[in-house]
Structures are given as structure tokens and as C-alpha cells.
Nucleic acid binder design. Structure first.
Lengths: 182, 182
DNA sequence: CAGGATTCTGACCGATCGGTCAGTAGCGTG
DNA sequence: CACGCTACTGACCGATCGGTCAGAATCCTG
């Protein structure tokens, strides 16, 4: 169904731009060119729509977690992580920036748990404050940067350009101090 | 008046935690132990309360801008910038994470303009994508990290510890590539 | 104590919210 | 054509939103 995908696409844009609480079901319906009732026909509730919107991105995080769990964090991991951020930039922006205001929403709690688990992998090798903050800055900063890039620059940069820059910066950030000082 | 300051303090916490849209005037009144009418007696509107909440932090940004305009960005600038982030961590978190969902609020538009101006100072010396992203990651990442630190770690680190780590990380991030490669 | 200003409150308002429901339009198949 | 299923809609609901207002409580000062 084209409508279902359209609704999810519209919801993704609006949930990221105006926020989940700042986006009404009627607004999504208006942007998609259907009635509010039609939105709630395809998706049982506004929450179910959020679920469908960021669900795939959460599955992507689980894949990354599985990969981290198996092997160590090497250079190719940063590359894969950046590709994930680029692919799901709006979804990541949603559950990074709005997770604290949507504590009672199940899918957000799932996102919270995943992010915490991911953060733990970075924190367990080194319990220093700085290394923990490096991961937080990398994640929160990249999410902020990718979602608001068009606000600061009129013409968006090419994805390849942004990808290269992000890999450089995040490699620098996520490489622990003790390995850099070898 | 203790009540007025209490209300602003409560509003600061809630606007940062649950978001401006996710915080009702009644909720603020409940947390402050007064009636909703009393809140709207001291502050003409919910928007005026937001104004009083993040206004001082915006004044702080203007001071930083003035300093940047006068002199170059040196090591002590990062230190001052970190102190600003630590002092106004909740306020910064509010207008960094919610500025896109509150586009019609005047005080948020003021914050937007200030952040854009600050970003321009970093972008004008180098128009490269990477240098622009470095500033975005530093600002968005630090705001995210400082506001959500307690979510990931049960016991908060001391401010001095966080301050030192943040200065290290942001110095590394904000030092342009061309100077590092000298 | 008297009285005016300040502080505070409950009752109420229109608007908007997410969600329900009965009903209809369209479409493919027998 | 007739049937059944999917897609869709307008009307409506209770709840909550920000905000208003008349009046009560409190406080300060003469």
C-alpha cells in the first residue's frame, strides 16, 4: 500500500522536525492528503505510528550490538556505525532527542535500553569519565548534526562528503585515549 | 519572591526533562505546590515562563559571542565555553534539542539566531564540511551528554571531573585540522 | 484595627488532542 | 449484477490544554 508507506514517511519527517508531542494525527493526515480517520485506520494509534516509524532503526541498532558483542571495535566498526547514522538519521534524531520526554512509550523504552547497552560496550573497557563522555558526544553530536545540517547550511552537502568527515571525526572521538597514547 | 524563583527552577527541570510541549502549566504548579492560576499570575503565559527560564543562558551566549568577535579562538575560549555549558546545562539542552519543534516561539528564535551566529564564527575560518561538523558535534554532543549523564551513570561525576574531560574532548574537536597538521 | 495592595485560588472557557464508530465508496471476484 | 472486502470518511466523544476572571486570603502599612 502506497498510503501506509506515505504515512510512515510523513510521520518520520514530522516526528523528527516538530517532535512527537508537537505533531498531531490531524497534521500527519493533512500532509499525507488523507483524513485523520484514515491515518488511524492504517495505524491503530499515534503510538503505533511512532513504532512503525523508528522500529527499523532500532532493528539496525540490534544488528550493530550483535556485531559489537561478537568482535572488538575496530576501524570498520566506526564506518558501519556512521553508515547506520546516515541511513537512519531522522529516526536516530527522534529517539536521541525525545527519549527523555517519552518515557512511557514502549518503543522509546526499547530504544533507551538499546542505547544504554551500546554505551556500556564503550564504557566497560574503560570506566573513565572521559571515555564515557566521548561516546555520548559522538552519538548525541552526530544525531544533532545530521538532523539539523540543513538549518545551518542552505545547500546540503553530499552524503559521501558528510560520510567521510563523520568517519574521521568519530574515529578520533571513539578511539580511547590509552590506545592513542601508545 | 521565593515562589517566582521556585517556579522558574521547576520549569527549568521539567522543560529540559519532559520538553516544553510535554510539560503542562498544571504540572509545573503541582511540582511547585501552588495552583495553576498562581503560576499564570506570576508569569503571564507558559511562553513567558520559558522566556524567563532560558533567557539568562541566552545572555551568556551573547557574552561569548562578544568575546569571540573581539579576539581569536584560543585555548582559554574552550575553557570558557565549557564553563558556560556546565553552568547552563539544562537551558542549553532545552534550546538545542527543542529549537526545531518550537519555531514559532520568539525566545527560541532568538536562541536559533545566536547559535547560528556562533556556528558562523567557526565556519568562516574554514568552509570545509568537516570543520562545520566538528562544531555541531561538539555543541550538540556536549548538550546531549550533560543533560543525560545521570541516565547512563547512577552516580553523577563531580563537576570538576566532567569539566576536565569536556575541555580535553572539545579542545580536540574544535581545533581545526589545518592547525593540527602544522 | 482599617484598608489597600499583593498573592493566590476554584470555576470556567474555547480549542485541540487522540481515538471511536457507523456508514460509504470503490474494487475485484463469483 | 451481487457480494464481500479493503480503504476511507465525517461526526462525535471525553480528556486535557493554555488562559481568563471574579473573588478570597494574606500581608504590609498607616
Amino acid at each position: 500500500m502506497a498510503t501506509i508507506d506515505d504515512l510512515r514517511s510523513v510521520a518520520l519527517d514530522e516526528f523528527s522536525r516538530a517532535g512527537y508531542l508537537g505533531t498531531s494525527v490531524a497534521r500527519i493526515a493533512e500532509l499525507a492528503g488523507v483524513s485523520k480517520s484514515s491515518v488511524l485506520y492504517h495505524y491503530a494509534s499515534k503510538e503505533a505510528l511512532l513504532d512503525a516509524t523508528i522500529g527499523p532503526a532500532l532493528d539496525g541498532i540490534e544488528q550493530i550490538l550483535e556485531r559489537v558483542r561478537r568482535g572488538a571495535i575496530d576501524d570498520s566498526f566506526v564506518e558501519e556505525f556512521v553508515d547506520f547514522l546516515l541511513r537512519y538519521r531522522l529516526e536516530v534524531n527522534i529517539f536521541i532527542n525525545q527519549r527523555r520526554s517519552l518515557v512511557d512509550v514502549p518503543v522509546i523504552e526499547r530504544a533507551n535500553a538499546l542505547v544504554v547497552r551500546l554505551a556500556q560496550y564503550f564504557g566497560e573497557s574503560s570506566t573513565s569519565v572521559e571515555d564515557r563522555m566521548r561516546f555520548g558526544i559522538a552519538l548525541g553530536g552526530a544525531a544533532y548534526c545530521l538532523a539539523t545540517a540543513e538549518d545551518f547550511s542552505p545547500d546540503p552537502y553530499s552524503d559521501e562528503h558528510v560520510r567521510g568527515a563523520l568517519i574521521d571525526i568519530l574515529s578520533e572521538l571513539l578511539t580511547p585515549v590509552h590506545t592513542r597514547h601508545d
